[in-house]
């Protein structure tokens, strides 16, 4: 069953950058997502996505795990609880601003 918590609106400058906001929007709805899949869906280069993922990871919003599959290292991204709360708060604030 879908769990929805009451969220206090709070603008988050870390999340507000276009790509980070879109990445959080995707990660908020799933358990985890491969880096490659996120890059493909967001239609950006590896380096750009890496840079933004690092910003989110440094803030504790995203956790990165690595695993080997078919001899290739694959990175997987997941939103942390803090990240999910920050994203929900940011979206609530955007909605509040729109009115």
């Amino acid at each position: 069953m879908t769990e929805r918590r009451i969220t206090e609106p709070r603008f988050d400058t870390t999340i507000h950058a276009a790509l980070r906001l879109q990445l959080c929007a995707m990660l908020a709805e799933v358990d985890a997502m491969d880096f490659a899949a996120a890059r493909e869906d967001l239609d950006v280069s590896d380096s750009v996505l890496s840079k933004h993922v690092k910003v989110l990871a440094d803030e504790g919003y995203v956790v990165i795990t690595s695993r080997t599959s078919g001899g290739r290292a694959r990175k997987r991204l997941a939103l942390t609880r803090a990240g999910a709360d920050a994203y929900a708060g940011h979206v609530a604030e955007l909605r509040r601003l729109i009115g």
């Binding site: 507000h16 276009a18 906001l21 929007a25 869906d41 750009v48 933004h52 979206v91 729109i98």
Partner: peptide, 24 residues
């Protein structure tokens, strides 16, 4: 072009919400 716009932090609220919808 997407790489260039990825860093944008001046999104208006409506634009930001629309971008999350596109990502979803």
């Amino acid at each position: 072009a997407r790489d260039d716009s990825a860093d944008r932090e001046d999104l208006r609220p409506a634009e930001a919400l629309a971008s999350t919808k596109a990502a979803r």
